[in-house]
């Protein structure tokens, strides 16, 4: 999933300072799972903002709404009739949702309420960690199912580097060294001999380096 975290409320207040009618728009997908922008967080943010404006002696109307998804035309259409009531929307969806909502409603300012962080997993209650950088050409078959692009601090494809210490990465003793994990896993699979195959120079044109990407599937187009 896409993992996001809440923006500090001060930053959101600064973004909306000039508006009087605001919609806080949540998303029921990834940001709900990572507890940054679902219905619950929409409610919490709306209450905190109302409290802030009351204390500040300002009259600002804050409404709440959470869509099934903000990255789909179908669900975004659900707010078509009410959008005009607001002079700004704070979207708690990931950066994708914020943009897609903005594209759909050209005349309404869209402000991000979360920082979109990475593609990752819920490793534990309250702990989300990165697993993929959408490099566009997945290498996991040769790395024991562990991604060096997103999990090695230097995205070394033929690791580990000389800084790997007791299973941890040179940049932080709390962080697992991806290459230690890869080696442990290859060993568990009885495939450590594969370690000596050199991973060739990667085609990064499928990564963000190649410019904005697109997937076209004619077979499913109508």
């Amino acid at each position: 999933m896409i993992v996001a975290e809440k923006k500090p409320i001060e930053e959101i207040i600064a973004q909306i300072s000039e508006y009087k009618n605001i919609l806080i728009l949540g998303c029921n997908e990834c940001v709900t799972v990572c507890e940054a922008g679902g219905k619950k967080e929409v409610g919490l943010l709306a209450s905190a903002l109302r409290m802030y404006f009351i204390n500040a002696g300002k009259e600002v109307k804050i409404d709440e709404r959470t869509l099934e998804r903000q990255c789909d035309h179908e669900y975004l259409d659900e707010i078509r009739d009410i959008v005009d009531r607001y002079d700004a929307i704070v979207s708690l969806a990931c950066g994708v949702g914020v943009q897609f909502t903005a594209e759909k409603y050209q005349n309404t300012p869209l402000l991000p309420g979360v920082n979109t962080c990475f593609l990752g997993v819920t490793e534990d209650r309250g702990l989300w960690t990165e697993r993929c950088q959408a490099c566009g050409q997945c290498l996991l078959a040769s790395t024991g199912g562990i991604c060096p692009v997103s999990r090695c601090a230097k995205r070394i494809l033929n690791g580990p580097c000389g800084g790997s210490t007791k299973g941890k990465c040179e940049i932080n003793a709390e962080l697992d060294c991806a290459w230690q994990l890869i080696i442990d896993r290859l060993k568990a699979l009885g495939r450590l001999d594969e370690y000596e195959k050199i991973t060739p120079i990667k085609d990064w044109s499928k990564d963000r380096a190649g410019g904005p990407r697109k997937v076209v599937r004619e077979d499913v187009q109508i």
Binding site: P160, C161, T165, C177, Q180, D184, I198
Partner: peptide, 14 residues
């Protein structure tokens, strides 16, 4: 001296 020690020679071979 970096870890894991067991792959330090395979890495040299590589």
């Amino acid at each position: 001296f970096a870890d894991p020690f067991e792959i330090r020679v395979p890495r040299l071979a590589k």
